[in-house]
Design a binder for these strands. Structure first.
Length: 458
RNA sequence: GCCCCCAUCGUCCAGAGGCCUAGGACACCACCCUUUCAAGGUGGCGACACGGGUUCGAAUCCCGUUGGGGGUGCCA
C-alpha cells in the first residue's frame, strides 16, 4: 500500500447538502490537496427507510459546484452489506457481540422503572440468544479501562469504558448501523485520517472499540472539527437555520466565496489575508491549526466575502454569471451595457433585478417618490431636465454637465437635485449611476418618463 | 441526570511564556471622496470569563469555579 494520506467525506442522503457538511467536506478536501493525499467519498445509505437516493445527486452536485473534486468513485454502503455481515459474524464468533431481542420501548421502560440513566442496560448480555432475524446485534463493551485517542484538533480525549453502553451493530432487520459500517469501510478504503464534525466525538470510542475487536490495528488519525452554530450558539439545524448549500447558490453566492468563507470558520491563514484564491488556501491550510471551539456562521461576513469575490470577477465573467438572475432580454441587454456599475454594488447576485427593473418603466415605490419629490425645486428640476435634455448630445458627460448647470441655476445641491430625476426615471431613490443609465435608456424614453413624473407632481 | 468538549473585541481569526499599553477582518459609528447607493480612504468603539497556582515573567502551562455547546436512537 502507499503512504499517501487518505481522508473521506461521508454524507448520508437524508437531506440536502448543508453548510456544516460542506465545511467538513471542504476541510477534508483542503487536507488532501495540501498534503498530496486523496479525498474520497462514501455515501452512507444503510438506512433504507430514510434514504432518498435523489439527495445523493444534490450532494454530489453541490460538492462539484463548490469545486471539491473527489478521487475515485464514491463508495455506497448499500453495496457493501456482505462486508458488514462478515464483520458482524466475526464479532459474534469472538464473543465481542451478542444478540438482543429487546425493543426500544422495553429498554426505556426498564430504565424508567429503575430510575437509571438512558441507554441500554445490558439485559441480553448473558442470555446467550442465538443471533438471527428479528434480533439486533449488540457490541459487548468492556466493563473497565479507557478508550482514548489523540485528536488532531482537540488533543487527548478519553472515555471510561464503563460509561459505554452495549450499542447496536446490526439492526433487527439485519442492516448495519453507521458505527459498524464506518469501522469496516474506513479500513476497506484505507482511510488514514478521519476528519468530521464534533458531533461525532461521542461515537468515536465505540468506533475504536469495534476496530480493535475486528483486529484492525492501524488506527487512523482522528480530527473533530468545530461545529457551525447560529446566533443562539446552537448547532446549525435544518429546521431553524438557512443551511442548504443549494439555497445559497440560488441566492447568488459564488462558489468561490462560499468555500472561501467556510475555510475561515475554525481556521485562519497565518498572515491574516482572508479573501484569497483557493490555491493559496490549500498551500496555507494545516489540519493541526484548526481550532476546537464552535464558530458562528455569520451571514453578514459571508455577504462581504461574496461581494469581494463578485468585484474581483472579470467583467465578462460577471455578466455571464449575472444573466441568470435577470428575467428578460431587455434587462440582460442593460446588464451587458452597465454591468460593471452593478458589479461593484451587488453583494449577492439575486439583488440584480432591483438594479435593472427600471428597464421596463419606473418601479412602483411610493417611499422613494415621496422622499425625492419633497425637494422644493422638484418640479423645476424636472422641467429643467426636460428642457436641457431635449437637444443634448446623448452621452454621459454632456448629460452630467447639463444637470450640474441646472442644479446650480436652481441653487440645489447636486446630491438633492438628482433625486427627482432619478425617481421619475427609475422609480427608486438609489441605484446605478444616473447618467450612464439615461444613456442606455435613450432620449425618447427618458423624456417621456421625466414628463410623466412632472405630470404626476401636478 | 450521565458522558465528552469548549472558553481572546458583538462575530470570525492571529497570538504556540517575555516582541501584547493584545493584532487583522466583519458589523457598527464618525469624517473624507461623491449625481444616489455602493466601493474606496481615514479615524473611532471594542476582548484575554472568574479564582487559585507554576514562573523572574502568563492571553499563552496546571487546577478549580462559572458559563456555553455536543452526545446520550435498532439516525448518521
Amino acid at each position: 500500500m502507499t503512504d499517501v494520506f487518505r481522508c473521506r467525506f461521508a454524507p448520508s442522503p437524508t437531506g440536502y447538502l448543508h453548510v456544516g457538511s460542506a465545511q467538513s467536506a471542504l476541510f477534508n478536501w483542503l487536507f488532501a490537496r495540501s498534503t498530496g493525499g486523496q479525498f474520497l467519498l462514501r455515501i452512507e445509505d444503510t438506512d433504507a427507510e430514510r434514504n432518498r437516493p435523489e439527495l445523493t445527486d444534490n450532494i454530489l452536485e453541490m460538492l462539484q459546484w463548490l469545486g471539491l473534486d473527489w478521487d475515485g468513485e464514491p463508495v455506497h454502503q448499500s453495496d457493501r452489506f456482505d462486508a458488514y455481515r462478515a464483520a458482524a459474524d466475526q464479532l459474534i464468533a469472538s464473543g465481542a457481540a451478542y444478540a438482543c431481542d429487546c425493543t426500544t420501548e422495553q429498554v426505556q421502560a426498564r430504565n424508567k422503572a429503575a430510575g437509571g440513566p438512558p441507554g441500554y442496560d445490558g439485559f441480553c448480555r448473558d442470555r446467550g440468544l442465538e443471533p438471527g432475524p428479528g434480533r439486533a446485534l449488540r457490541f459487548r463493551t468492556p466493563d473497565d479501562g479507557v478508550t482514548a485517542w489523540d485528536d488532531v484538533v482537540r488533543g487527548k480525549v478519553t472515555f471510561d469504558n464503563a460509561n459505554l453502553e452495549d450499542f447496536v451493530l446490526l439492526r433487527s432487520s439485519g442492516t448495519p448501523t453507521f458505527l459498524l459500517a464506518n469501522a469496516v469501510d474506513d479500513d476497506f478504503m484505507g482511510i488514514t485520517h478521519v476528519i468530521r464534525g464534533e458531533d461525532h466525538v461521542n461515537g468515536t470510542p465505540k468506533y475504536l472499540l469495534i476496530r480493535a475487536a475486528l483486529g484492525l490495528v492501524d488506527q487512523p488519525q482522528l480530527a473533530h472539527l468545530p461545529l457551525l452554530v447560529n446566533e443562539g450558539r446552537k448547532k446549525l439545524s435544518k429546521r431553524r437555520d438557512d443551511v442548504s448549500v443549494a439555497d445559497y447558490k440560488a441566492k447568488g453566492y459564488l462558489p468561490e466565496a462560499m468555500r472561501n468563507y467556510l475555510s475561515l470558520l475554525g481556521w485562519g491563514p497565518p498572515d491574516g489575508v482572508e479573501v484569497r484564491p483557493i490555491e493559496e488556501l490549500i498551500e496555507l491550510f494545516r489540519l493541526e491549526d484548526v481550532n476546537p471551539s464552535p464558530a458562528f456562521f455569520d451571514l453578514k461576513k459571508l455577504e462581504h466575502v461574496n461581494a469581494e469575490w463578485i468585484r474581483r470577477l472579470d467583467p465578462a465573467d460577471f455578466v455571464e454569471r449575472a444573466e441568470a438572475f435577470l428575467t428578460d432580454e431587455a434587462e440582460r441587454e442593460a446588464l451587458r451595457a452597465l454591468g460593471s456599475l452593478a458589479q461593484e454594488r451587488v453583494k449577492v447576485l439575486s439583488e440584480l433585478p432591483e438594479y435593472f427593473d427600471w428597464v421596463h418603466g419606473p418601479a412602483d415605490d411610493e417611499r422613494s417618490w415621496e422622499k425625492a419629490m419633497k425637494v422644493p425645486a422638484a418640479a423645476d428640476l424636472l422641467d429643467g431636465a426636460v428642457a436641457g435634455y431635449e437637444d443634448a448630445p446623448w452621452d454621459r458627460d454632456e448629460l452630467h454637465a447639463r444637470f450640474m448647470d441646472l442644479a446650480a441655476r436652481l441653487e440645489t445641491s447636486a446630491s438633492k437635485a438628482q433625486g427627482p430625476i432619478r425617481v421619475a426615471v427609475t422609480g427608486r431613490i438609489s441605484g446605478l449611476p444616473l447618467f450612464e443609465l439615461l444613456v442606455h435608456l435613450g432620449r425618447e424614453e427618458t423624456l417621456a418618463r421625466l414628463r410623466a413624473g412632472r405630470a404626476r407632481l401636478g
